[in-house]
Amino acid sequence: MVSHTHTKVDTAPKRSDEPIWWGLFGAGGTWFAMLTPITIFVIGILVPMGLLDAEALSYERVSSFASSIIGGLFIIATLALPMWHAMHRLHHGMHDLKIHTGVVGKVACYWFASAITLLAIVFVLMV
């Protein structure tokens, strides 16, 4: 005779905000891994070595780029997304290290990422 165990399915599970934070974590990690090295390579290596004309990064051109919608979104994403990744990693890393800060730690981490995001938006709008 085969015994069947029946597991009761929770038809009204508690809503979680974790998908939002994991989504920002994933977006930030992807941005940081894929676009930040290219940005550093261009600005930190190609221009100083003279392999890319320094005039390509003149104040006027960079200001024009930063003032465009694409440039503004690029700057915001470059500053904000990796910060969301880092703060989510910090929040869960503290838990892994048995430093249980509870809701206070979660709010502090995500508040800081929110503040950086807001500052990036303000910065772009001021350009």
Score class of each variant (00 low, 15 high):
G26Y: 04
W31V: 00
W22H: 14
L24E: 05
G71E: 03
G23M: 13
S67N: 13
A27N: 00
G105L: 09
S63I: 06
I75Q: 01
I69N: 07
V104C: 04
K98H: 14
W21P: 02
T78L: 13
G71Q: 03
F41V: 09
F25M: 14
H91D: 14
I99G: 10
I69S: 14
G29P: 02
S67G: 15
I70E: 12
G72T: 01
T30M: 06
L79S: 14
L90K: 15
I20Q: 13
I40P: 02
L79C: 15
A80G: 04
Y59M: 09
M34Y: 07
D96A: 12
P37A: 11
L51M: 14
I76V: 03
R89G: 15
G102F: 05
I43S: 10
T78G: 08
A77T: 12
G29K: 05
E60R: 04
A54T: 08
P48G: 06
A54V: 07
G28H: 01
A27P: 00
H100Q: 13
H85G: 13
L24V: 08
I99T: 11
G26S: 09
V42G: 05
H88D: 12
S67V: 05
T30R: 02
M49Q: 11
I69R: 07
M34S: 12
S63W: 04
I45C: 08
A77Y: 08
Y59E: 09
I40F: 15
S64W: 14
E55V: 05
T36D: 14
V104K: 09
T36Y: 06
D96C: 08
V47S: 00
E55M: 08
M49H: 08
F32D: 12
L51W: 15
Y59F: 10
V62W: 12
S68A: 07
L51G: 07
R61V: 00
H91T: 11
P82L: 02
S68R: 07
P82Y: 02
G72N: 01
S58Y: 06
F74N: 00
I45E: 10
I99Q: 08
G29V: 04
L35A: 10
S67E: 09
T78C: 12
L46Y: 03
G50H: 02
V62S: 11
M87G: 01
A56N: 06
L24A: 11
D53E: 01
G44T: 12
A54L: 06
L24P: 02
G72H: 00
I38M: 05
S58L: 06
V42Q: 07
G102L: 07
P48T: 03
W21N: 04
W31S: 01
P48M: 11
T39P: 04
H88L: 07
L35E: 07
A33Q: 10
I69T: 14
V104L: 06
F25N: 15
F25S: 13
G23K: 12
L35Q: 07
M49L: 15
I45Q: 09
G26W: 03
D53I: 00
S63R: 07
L51C: 04
E55S: 13
S63P: 03
A54S: 10
H95Q: 13
A27L: 01
H91E: 15
I70Y: 15
H95S: 08
E60Q: 10
W22P: 03
L35R: 05
I76H: 00
I76A: 00
D96I: 12
L81I: 06
F74L: 06
P37V: 08
V103Q: 13
